[in-house]
């Protein structure tokens, strides 16, 4: 388990990193936290000829919470989000969901941008980004552009980011008034990749009826799946256990997960229903308290 030979570059500025990307294109891989890339290289499942280590690039780390938006630098480590009091206040889902990523050793190295570009559809960050309708800013030497999750995630481990681009920052909305968040995943062991993950946001109106809601599931397709058909039905209704149970039942027919050695198709579907119901209920409960 030793990687194949590669050339290693450690740029000191973003501009330098981008010009290296221009030079090497598809031959280069960005090394950020390395939590997925390095094991793949050690197993020789990935053999990038060039590795561009951006850990020395300044200005890509940090969390800024504005009135309506949270901007997280692409190189920000998971643990920084995990331990941010501002994130806890401004985006409970993110605060909760970040803790579900791997183990503390992984969160101390892994980066927000790295998780996003790795685009594992059962990973927490892509699911939360989709659930909350966040955005990703990518840069290349020539330009900077913003992508919605729908524009970004193509399929398993694949995004629309070009080989000359780097994730500069990831943006999440600040939680609105009378809104609750919830996220839950099913794993066989604590810290494993989720078999199914569900995240929900519920906003109530002043009478306590559901004003808007979002539900996103990971583990059923090549990208996180947003179930607007389910949440649209909830609008204007009073949140209750029965309502969520009833509205989540049809999810069985809405998702088409694949089986693997850990879970069958049917079991995954069951988990989607159960977790959706739970996160919607919990998010609504949180919204009542908000």
């Amino acid at each position: 388990m030793k990687p194949a030979a590669f050339d290693y570059y450690k740029p000191e500025t973003l501009a330098e990193a981008l010009s290296l990307l221009d030079e090497f294109g598809y031959d280069a891989k960005i090394l950020a936290g390395g939590q997925s890339l390095i094991p793949m290289m050690n197993m020789r499942l990935a053999r990038p000829p060039v590795l561009i280590d951006i850990n020395g690039v300044p200005g890509m780390t940090g969390i800024e919470v504005g009135d309506s938006e949270i901007v997280i630098g692409g190189l920000t480590r998971h643990y920084m989000v995990e331990h941010s009091a501002e994130i806890e206040r401004s985006c409970p889902m993110l605060a909760e969901g970040i803790k579900l990523i791997g183990h503390s050793q992984i969160r101390s190295r892994g980066t927000i941008g790295g998780s996003i570009v790795h685009a594992d559809p059962t990973a927490e960050l892509p699911v939360m980004l989709t659930a909350l309708g966040g955005k990703v800013t990518v840069v290349s030497s020539g330009e900077e552009r913003e992508l919605t999750p729908e524009e970004l995630f193509l399929t398993y481990m694949t995004t629309t980011i070009e080989p000359n681009e780097i994730v500069k920052s990831v943006h999440f909305p600040v939680i609105a008034e009378r809104t609750g968040h919830a996220i839950e995943e099913f794993t066989l062991r604590s810290g494993d990749f989720a078999i199914i993950i569900a995240a929900a946001s519920v906003t109530l109106d002043e009478e306590g009826l559901i004003e808007s809601a979002a539900l996103c599931i990971g583990g059923v397709d090549g990208v996180p799946v947003k179930l607007d058909e389910v949440t649209d039905e909830l609008i204007g209704q009073a949140p209750s256990e029965e309502l969520f149970a009833e509205s989540c039942e049809p999810i069985v027919d809405m998702v088409e997960p694949e089986k693997d050695i850990h879970a069958s198709v049917e079991y995954r579907k069951d988990l989607c229903v159960a977790l959706s119901r739970r996160v919607l209920k919990k998010a609504a409960d949180e919204a009542k308290l908000a």
Partner: peptide, 16 residues
């Protein structure tokens, strides 16, 4: 062998 790494061969951790 389809469970030939610690990704798929699950040994209980201190959490379990």
């Amino acid at each position: 062998l389809v469970s030939g790494s610690f990704m798929d061969y699950l040994i209980p951790t201190s959490m379990e």
